[in-house]
Structure formats: C-alpha cells, structure tokens
Amino acid sequence: MLFLGTTIDGLQMGLCFAVIALGVYISYSILDFPDLSVDGTFPLGGVCCTIFMLKTGMPPIIATLLSFIAGALAGTITGILHVKFKISKLLSGIIVMTGLLSVNLALTKVLTGTGYTTTIFSYNSVGIEGLFGGKLAGLLGGGGKDLMIIIILLVIVLATKFIIDIFKKTKMGYMLGATGGNERLVTYLGKDSGMYKILGIAIANGFVAVGGALYSQLYMSYDNTSGSGKVVLALASVIIGMSVFANIRIIKNTTAVIFGAIIYSLCLNYLVLVDTQGIYTKLLNAVLFALILIFNDKISHLIKGKTYSKKAVKEDA
C-alpha cells in the first residue's frame, strides 16, 4: 500500500511538474536558453494564484490562467535583460530569480497581513480549494479523489502539450525554433531575433507559473521556498524525456518531456521511501540528475529507432 500510495503521489507530482517541464522545454530546448528564472517564477505562479483565489474569490481556473500572465511578465524581464542589455543568459535568469524571492515574499505578506514570514505559509484545506477540491474531485466519491486529481491534471497537461505542438507549427513557432537554432537566419529574414527570444522566455515562464499555481492547489499550501530546485527538476525532466525517446520519431518532443517529468518524479518519490527523514532529498535529486546526464547517450541507445533524432542534429550543429 505504501508503494501504491507513493506511485500515486509520484504521478500527481509528475503531471504537475510536466507543465513546468513543458515550459522549460520551450526555453531550453527550442530557444537554447537555460533559464534560471524558473526558480522564481514557479512560486510566483503559486502565490499569485493563491492571492487571486483567496483575496478576490476568483474561480480557480481563472486564477490559474492569470498566474500564466504573472509568470510571463517575469519572463519578459529576463528576456529584456538578456536581449536589450546584453546580460548573459545565465545571469539574466539569476537576477530575475533573486529579485522574485522578495517579490514573492511581499506578495505573501499581502496575503497574510500579519507581517514577515519566511517559512511555510500554509493554508489548510479550508483555505485553498483550488481546482482539485470541491465538487469536481468529489464526483468519484472519497476514494476516487486521487484518481480524479490525476485525470484533471492529465487534461491540463495534454491541453498544454497540444497548445505548444500547434504553436510550433505556426509561422511564429517556426521563428522561435529558428531563433534557437540559428539566430542569424532570423535576422536575415528581416526580423528582430531578440523579440522572439523575449516572447519565448515569456511563454516558457508563463507555463512554469501555471505549474506553480497547480502545485499550490495540489498540496493546498503555498511555500516561499518551493521554487528552489525547480530548474534542475525541469531540466532533468526535459533531458530524460528527450533522451529516452530520442530515437522514436512518432513520439513528439512534448510527449517525451511529459514522460520525462513523470519518470523523474516517480524516481524522486521512491527515493523518499528510502530517505524517510527527507534530509537527503536534494542531494539525491542532484545525484539522480548527474547520473542521467552521464548515461544520457546510453539511455537513448537502449531504445533504438530506425531514423535519426532531431535532437542529436541540434547538438551536432
């Protein structure tokens, strides 16, 4: 039963993180921009969504969608710092991530109204009902709540995936890909590649914030420190997914990333079974990621396909 419970938790967490991973897929994989602001935009999404729901009584879905805008705004700042002020990609991300720590704290303060609290800002079940509480999740009765959560998360994740897939096929999506693959070409097509970078980073962080919003609703709490390690988590998901399925052409990159997030979250959850006190969580997190990077090639060769991989091409070039 413990194992089953862990698997369910892992699945829920994985689906929640899949949304973040899809966002990071846009910045890291399509735009070739390792964006560290994710650590800040994840909790930003969570706190904004919580404020919208608790302070304005907004329906959770609207609150979740609005958190996309909050994340996108933060992402825009990262993009502008890099494009307009020529600050390196990593540093632009770090600057925004650091700044957001205070922004998130200030927003938390608005929520509590009691002043300075750094640690867990936890509203219990009475506080955040979100997408997962209330009537919808109750449809399958008490025991079906976990399943219902998975179904709702799955719908959201698939919707995100299809939006990204369709966007990738549009002219604008192509330009985003071209910006990541060969910026000079975008310039020679008469467009400002910087604008596409800003746009891409904004969209990516929008999805990350939605992930944060879902996370705070899933666990019915908001924690200012919840952002730490999310970059690693999302990058790991993207890299696992894309290397496991690199040689299978029918599986789209977006699908691969979703599986990557689920695989990674399950691994993390099973590790918690071993490390019951949770002391080594982050260390295990890091070691797992390192192992994945080390065995990256071997994983993709385990699953052989007939055709080439698009990702391999990008790395060669």
Partner: peptide, 25 residues
Amino acid sequence: VPQMTIIENLSLAANKGKKYGFEFA
C-alpha cells in the same frame, strides 16, 4: 536552421518580408 527540415527551412525563407503570425507555416 539545422534541426528543421528542408521544407521547413524553405517555408521560413519564402515568407520573408511578410508577417510571421499564427498561420501554419
């Protein structure tokens, strides 16, 4: 663009001077 196919590259180039909007490329 190395990771895009020939057709995708040509489609991008053929649109030069026009808007790169939400139409399929």
